[in-house]
Amino acid sequence: MSKAIEYTYFPGCMIPFRLPHFELTMREVLRRLNIELIADEGHTCCPEPTTFTGVDYEAWLTVGARNIAVSESTGRDTMALCSGCFHTLSMVRYTLQSDNETRERLNKRLKRIGMIATGEVAVKNILHVLHEDVGLERIRKSIVQPLKNLSIAAHYGCHLVRPIEATHMDDAEDPMWMEDLIEVTGAKPVDYPDKMACCGAPISPSDESKSFVLAGEKLLKIRDAGADAIVLVCPTCYTQMEMQQKKAIEHLDPEFSLPILYLGEMMALAMGMSDLVVENARRYHRVKIQPLLEKMGVGK
């Protein structure tokens, strides 16, 4: 096989330490597609875009620019698995590119630590890498266990997609890249109302009850559309949809069960790496995914 394509891996905080099965499954999926993720120990928290921005926006830009500078020094494109990290890095990169005054101000701070950020090196999310860089045809060839019986709804989450001028995604209101990937795995993509509605997680620090209402509405709409599962990319959306679903079960409907799959898990299942998913299912899934695995004839 030819030499692997390398990306600089931006790890962030949530995925590597709280949800390492995200990284595990996606690394294996990417390996099958001849891609390696190279970590750089110089990176810090991105910083996360939902609360740190509102504490000190200028510090957010500065720490983000420092991470961009680390990434640029590797000479490779950077890929962030986490949507929050991706959002921060792509926003800061956009600012560096489009706003000279801010770029100069940020670089004055970086100069003190011997760094420079230009915004010239690409920052990508996993959908850019899979859908655009690898392409659906190559992925299709690596599918060995099509998810034939499953109907799966895509939840994109806000920060992966918006604002479009910084994220370079396909569409701000009706993105389709994840549905394309669902289709390639052999499953049926499920359309549902208000696909881009927020999961509600960003406001759990300030208003837990509103946060719950938003997640509950979203889950109901997806269930009513007939999905067997939700597939997503973002660790914050994942945690929110799982935790709030537990609460919804207590408050609203004891029968409610809508498994949440990370994109890497869905692809690993279709690529014949179900062991990787089954091994970690109990530890990292609050909503049981066993019924889903049974439906596709995997696991016990």
């Binding site: 939902t50 806000c158 918006r162 927020c198 509600g200």
Partner: peptide
Amino acid sequence: NQLIWTCLTCEQCEV
């Protein structure tokens, strides 16, 4: 106003 912290930063308004 504490309400400003209940903005999701979801950008639906901006879209």
